[in-house]
Nucleic acid binder design. Structure first.
Ligand SMILES: [Mn+2]
Ligand SMILES: [Mn+2]
Ligand SMILES: [Zn+2]
Ligand SMILES: [Zn+2]
Lengths: 141, 141
DNA sequence: GTTATTTTTGCGAATTGTTTCAACAATGTA
DNA sequence: TACATTGTTGAAACAATTCGCAAAAATAAC
């Protein structure tokens, strides 16, 4: 199994909660998912895993670099497996749709700005908020 | 008094809590301040104003456009009076220093990215995190 | 395998940041 | 003035997340 290796490589022992949570995160259906929603899926699957464990494991995955944490507007953290290259996000405030993008020019300029201000950049967060013009965009909250 | 006008212009009645909080926000010492820290200053000043009132007033100021809210890494919101033009922020993770910047090219590209993805942009948040190379940069948390 | 040691889990309680709500104060009106 | 309307307040409730701890698993040592 591939997930076992993934966990071991991260220095984490293979346990059922960690496997299940990793599985959920790897499902393309669940890109950008909150801890609460991970928990709900586990419950649906009939697993008896506590919410505290979900948070704990997500933090371990974060520390291990297996996932990335985002702070979209609206309070709660959102997670995504980090199997892609770096990218930033567009968020529709109406329907909640999240679009990923990367722009080399923006990245470049960020480095430049940092340099100009005597900062060694470790990371950044860029979120673009708006309303998508899709027909199927509907208030879902 | 100038602050009275500021409040009235925003459609808010002049009350002691609002005056005191506005005063604190206007102090250049307190750019980028959290609700909790506003509250602490009020306590130091001997004012008996509840934390809930601080949050409420900050939200009212936000709605009125008197201030801007930021979500720096680490959970809590940070506020700043909006007497400047739009700008983004560099944050030193070691000493906590906050540097403001604006970059027209980044702004331009953001609009372009939004357009390419059929989004009408309302606002964005961009934070650059790193370590400043100043001599006086010291761990303060 | 059996026992000892180390990790991990799940639960509840604690914390943190923030909002709600019923009581209170101010203002407007006759 | 008396009464209705509106605005403002602190205490309590709330939501997201973390902590403390004893029980359950996993791992290591015999
Ligand atoms: Mn993403
Ligand atoms: Mn600023
Ligand atoms: Zn949409
Ligand atoms: Zn610094």
């Amino acid at each position: 199994m591939d997930q076992n290796k993934e966990l071991k490589k991260a220095g984490l022992k293979v346990t059922l909660p960690r496997l299940k949570i990793l599985q959920i995160l790897q499902d393309p259906e669940n890109q950008h998912i909150s801890a609460e929603d991970v928990y709900k899926i586990l419950i649906e699957q009939g697993e008896e895993i506590g919410l505290a464990t979900v948070y704990r494991v997500l933090n371990q995955f974060d520390d291990a670099g297996i996932l990335n944490r985002h702070h979209f507007e609206g309070g709660k953290s959102v997670f995504e497996i980090s199997h892609k290259d770096h990218h930033d996000h567009l968020v529709c405030l109406k329907c909640g749709k999240v679009v990923e993008f990367e722009d080399d020019i923006i990245e470049e300029r960020q480095e430049l700005v940092a340099k100009q201000n005597n900062m060694k950049l470790t990371h950044h967060s860029l979120y673009l908020y708006g309303e998508c013009t899709d027909d199927n965009c509907e208030q879902l909250d």
